[in-house]
Design a binder for these strands. Structure first.
Lengths: 131, 131
DNA sequence: CTAACTGTATTATAAAACTAATACACTTTT
DNA sequence: AAAAGTGTATTAGTTTTATAATACAGTTAG
């Protein structure tokens, strides 16, 4: 079951979008697999200290995007084929990277400098992710 | 004068935050210099097709951060010393890059792959920025 | 000086995001 | 079968974001 263990609530954008992002990235990473059960709306609500309606909004949008499937009474399940998975991968990788590149450009950072910085920061936070 | 020529209104987050981001990145890039005049609130409002109050909110927050200085009646001016400039640079570069690195990690992308992707996307959009 | 422009302030409205408290029917578990 | 858990729906209220219409006093340019 998708437990949202390593999910961290940012102070950035809307919560329901953060949840959608988390699921999509998990699918791309392979840590969230097809057929897997989602944690229930109420349980996630309690876990994050967030209103159930906010979770419902996220889950509802995930269903509209054809990423999860809900039948009344039972837990929602992930339902993505390989095509969708690849779509999401391409879309997210490009989108996030393009945003970063544009940010670096607007700050007048050269390609070499930007890549070097990214590599440095990558190595810094290296110990935390590999458990 | 800061004309906001190359400013593009995203559909992402709040408009007033996009304006603040634009100014900060411009300062880091050196395209926005100390002492320079800001475009007036009304003029920018008309240029972006956005309510004057939204611009005022952005300018007000920029002043609270000590980035611009406003005297009633005259145009607001940028007022940042080298220390502030360096603070903003460090903060923005780190913040944006860390966000990208974390995104790539959460998608299970390796360091080499991520950096290669960034380099490819950097070269793609290369013709547009150098005029 | 005068007219135009500027920053600032006020009040009102609306949509989006989030919280709160329920309620009901369906599924799973015991 | 009964209880607990689940998806779904409704109504109400708050905060944030953005719009709209003015108004006033200080600065600048003609």
């Amino acid at each position: 079951m998708i437990s949202f263990e390593d999910f961290i609530l940012e102070e950035d954008g809307p919560i329901y979008l953060q949840i959608i992002r988390y699921v999509k990235r998990g699918i791309v990473a392979g840590s969230i697999r097809n057929g897997e059960e989602m944690i229930s709306r109420r349980a996630l609500s309690a876990l994050l200290g967030v209103n159930p309606n906010t979770i419902q909004k996220a889950y509802h949008l995930l269903e509209e995007e054809g990423i999860i499937r809900s039948r009344s009474g039972a837990k929602s399940c992930v339902e993505v084929d390989e095509g969708q998975k690849e779509e999401i991968r391409q879309s997210l990788l490009r989108q996030e990277t393009l945003a970063w590149v544009q940010a670096m450009r607007q700050m007048g950072t050269g390609r070499e400098d930007a890549l070097a910085l990214a590599e440095r920061i990558w190595k810094e936070g290296g110990g935390k992710e590999e458990r």
